[in-house]
């Protein structure tokens, strides 16, 4: 599974993506974020206020409790500033 990072989150991590294989205990996107943060101090710090982020699964924004089944690409999206 590919995890994408954008904007200042990408800069703070110094990379745009990771290829990960989460354990079976990771069932939702929320679980995935917890697991990623537990393995990466920089991500953990950058996501200290986690609910400001939106998540996408296969290029659709979805709720945090969305099951991870079928996820090929997950993105962690800092607050958006378009328009």
């Amino acid at each position: 599974m590919k995890v994408l990072y954008f904007a200042w989150l990408r800069e703070r991590l110094n990379r745009a993506s990771d290829e990960v294989t989460p354990p079976d205990s990771v069932r939702t996107l929320d679980d995935l974020v917890c697991w990623l943060r537990s393995n990466d101090e920089a991500l953990d710090l950058a996501m200290a206020n986690p609910r400001q982020f939106k998540l996408s699964k296969n290029a659709r924004i979805v709720p945090w409790d969305t099951p991870i089944d079928g996820a090929e690409t997950v993105a962690i999206l800092p607050p958006m500033t378009g328009g």
Partner: peptide, 12 residues
């Protein structure tokens, strides 16, 4: 416009 500001994945 109101939704594009906050829900479209762009970062300035």
């Amino acid at each position: 416009m109101d939704y594009l500001k906050t829900d479209a994945p762009f970062w300035k």
